[in-house]
Amino acid sequence: MRPLAAVTVALMVAVTAACGATGSPGSAPVQASSAPEASASVIGPVAAPVVDGAVEVSKATVDNLGFAPQPDRLRVERLGVDMEIIDVGIAPDGGMELPESAGVAGWFRLGGNPAGGLREDQNTVIAAHVDDAVMGRGPFAELRDARAGDRIEVSAEDGTTVAYIVDRVEQTSKQEVDFSVVFGAPDRALVLVTCGGKWDADVRHYEDNVLVWAFPEDAR
């Protein structure tokens, strides 16, 4: 553990995270549970062209382009979360764009989409401010009370709904969150992200990210 601590301290000095660069980088899972399991039940890509009938064929029409309807509503009934979703991208500073209001969630449009689409295997990331100056604490302030088994529903603009089941909640120092996994892993997870932990009044940022990891209900 001692070499690890040394590395972490060095990292604290090197990183200037926008959400609080000072303080302990300690990582404290709110709840711990099993590792992601969804990939086991997903049929992998075809490994060679010499295959029997496994190649997807469709008419090359606009209707079959593979664009999926955007998510527009997020519900976590047990936590009283029921909020609008809008699509967001990458902000000029390299962070994830977020809706200004803590009452609105942002879906990262260049990642996974619960309804499928060109990146159907990639994780879906939905984030929101934990608070704002107008409404105070937002719905995502409840996320740290999520627990394994909670049901999350994501509805799309075409009226369809995909359900996810919470696997675990993590509260991790922002310097230690592996966003290449959060955004890039082909695990079909839904990851709800907000801020938490200690508030650094000097830089007006929280020190941790709270991440809720959930997997499609129909994959369990």
């Binding site: 995270a17 926008a18 959400c19 382009l65 593979g66 664009f67 990458i90 902000a91 390299g94 962070g95 994830m96 977020l98 990262f108 260049l110 990642g111 060109l118 990146r119 984030a127 929101a128 401010h129 934990v130 608070d131 704002d132 100056a133 105070g136 604490r137 995502f140 302030a141 922002k174 969150v177 966003f179 290449s180 955004f183 890039g184 992200v193 907000t194 801020c195 938490g196 932990g197 200690k198 508030w199 009044a201 007006r204 940022h205 929280y206 990210n209």
Partner: peptide, 22 residues
């Protein structure tokens, strides 16, 4: 339609007030 490479956010800075702090 084929997917292109994309950038990924380097962080999620998701709070502005400190009202939900530990």
């Amino acid at each position: 339609s084929v997917a292109t490479h994309t950038g990924m956010p380097a962080e999620v800075s998701a709070g502005t007030q400190g009202l939900a702090a530990d």
